[in-house]
Design a protein around this nucleic acid. Structure first.
Length: 438
DNA sequence: TCTGGGGTCCTAGGACCC
DNA sequence: TCTGGGGTCCTAGGACCC
């Protein structure tokens, strides 16, 4: 049966999450900053209109933000992650075939139908999500994922579409593609855009009619797929169910540049702990650990150094202590005194399911500490991150990143629940903020 | 002074095998 | 003087995504 794809995309997702619990932000310019309050990663439409660009360093646009009284937030991933889960659950209730593509996007696949039917389906999804979470979404339909992405962009960009737009097979797709720049196409980044422009390929339409041999040579097989998708030939299928991860990483920029091995060791231990927690959360073990460190590449006035080291673990593991031990070994090898470091990070790879036990003939067997890890995770889930942690991660954490303007974790922390006030009879106020006895 | 973090896929080239 | 062909695996680097 012929099918059609739809892309459901939350509008300005992080900003919308902040607005759900802070209605006075509606209609005002709002931005959300990256970790460490480094740069802009989400903007409300009002903020976009002020000319604030994606990825712009905060310190550079700060005067503009202040001049226009733009409400500025540090990123609050506990909130965004939880809101995302709610949106995806609703979508999965409404539609049988769903692929969660990112924190704020999902593809669905549904039987091909007429424009009116699709519009009604789209509006129903849009209204249900809006009503049950407060998050506004846009929906684009298309015969391929790439075309659904373009339809979504148009649903968002042109207010007359009311947040839902369909590109139907058999319709005048070329006319739509002629108004889309090549660089706006999913999978065509900055480098490819420049290469294409050199060949006079400027629009999505041009790309759909380009010379395949040239595309194959300069944009590889992925470019060919994108080209076919623009022609309406589906090359990317719907990935349902969780796709097993190839790697799990954790890294942060320091709040201030660090040149002390002891501080770096604490940070590395802390990131390893987080990565190991994720690993166990997905019932995986890692066979390989990479540690990397780098100075601040923007500080050209300072000496630069970046390096990484990868080691195969004696046996695949998810044990925090063991991973910390290996990471610290790498760190000591990589660390050079005399540099101001900006970041250290850890990547776990060669992931295998935790229930597979592959021994190593030459390694000294380790005590199985799965029970310890489980207890650790349960305590931290129940009482909050880092209630219990390894001492090597340090307590004062001077390297910790900035997060000066974070909103409360409204939906994931009992102590930060929003306060609802009912003022029914005069002078009687009910404060519904409850904190469980601990 | 201050510039994020976590992922995926593809390719070319080297090393190695028979 | 002459020096194959076919294949795999690994890695680093590039490009892209949100």
């Amino acid at each position: 049966m012929p099918a059609i794809f739809a892309l459901i995309d939350c509008n300005n997702f992080y900003v919308s999450c902040e607005r759900v619990f802070n209605p006075e932000l509606a209609g005002k310019p709002v931005v959300v900053l990256s970790n460490n309050d480094g740069c802009i990663i989400a903007r409300s439409n009002e903020a976009k209109e002020l000319g604030i660009t994606m990825g712009e360093p905060y310190f550079r646009c700060k005067p503009l933000l202040e001049r226009h009284q733009v409400r500025t937030f540090s990123s609050n991933y506990a909130l965004y992650g939880d809101m995302s889960q709610r949106v995806m659950e609703i979508l999965s209730r409404l539609e049988p075939q769903v692929e969660i593509y990112s924190i704020d996007e999902a593809f669905i696949r549904l039987p091909l139908a007429g424009e009116e039917t699709l519009r009604r389906t789209g509006e129903n999804i849009r209204n249900t999500i809006r009503q049950q979470t407060g998050i506004p979404v846009s929906i684009g339909f298309g015969p391929t994922k790439t075309l659904a992405k373009i339809a979504n962009r148009l649903a968002k960009k042109i207010p007359e579409h009311g947040g839902v737009f369909a590109i139907l097979p058999g319709s005048d797709i070329d006319a739509v593609l002629k108004n889309i720049e090549a660089g706006e196409v999913w999978g065509i980044g900055g480098r490819s855009t420049r290469k294409l422009a050199g060949q006079g390929i400027r629009t999505a339409y041009d790309l759909s009619r380009a010379n395949e041999t040239w595309i194959r040579k300069h944009l590889s097989i992925t470019g060919i797929r994108t080209m076919h998708e623009l022609q309406g030939l589906s090359c990317f299928s719907l990935e349902e169910g969780p796709v097993p991860k190839q790697s799990i990483a954790c890294s942060r920029s320091f709040g201030a540049l660090a040149s002390d091995l002891h501080e770096m060791r604490e940070a590395a231990s802390s990131y390893v702990s987080r990565a190991a927690e994720k690993l166990r959360g997905q019932q995986l073990k890692a066979g390989c650990l990479t540690l990397y460190l780098t100075t601040n590449r923007f500080r050209t006035d300072l000496p630069q150094y970046a390096n990484s080291r990868t080691i195969a673990l004696p046996c695949p593991t998810s044990d925090t202590a063991e991973l910390i031990e290996q990471a610290v070994r790498c760190l000591k090898e990589l660390f050079r005194p005399g540099y101001a470091y900006q970041k250290v990070g850890v990547v776990l790879t060669d992931l295998i399911p935790a229930h597979i036990h592959q021994g190593n003939l030459f390694a000294t067997p380790r005590r199985n500490r799965d029970n310890l890890s489980q207890a650790l995770d349960r305590i931290n889930q129940r009482w909050g991150t880092d209630t219990l942690q390894y001492a090597s991660a340090g307590l004062s954490k001077p390297w910790h990143h900035k997060q000066a303007m974070k909103s409360p974790s409204y939906t994931t922390n009992w102590r930060e629940l929003p306060v609802a006030q009912a003022c029914l009879p005069p002078r009687l106020t009910v404060n519904a903020h409850t904190v469980p006895e601990t």
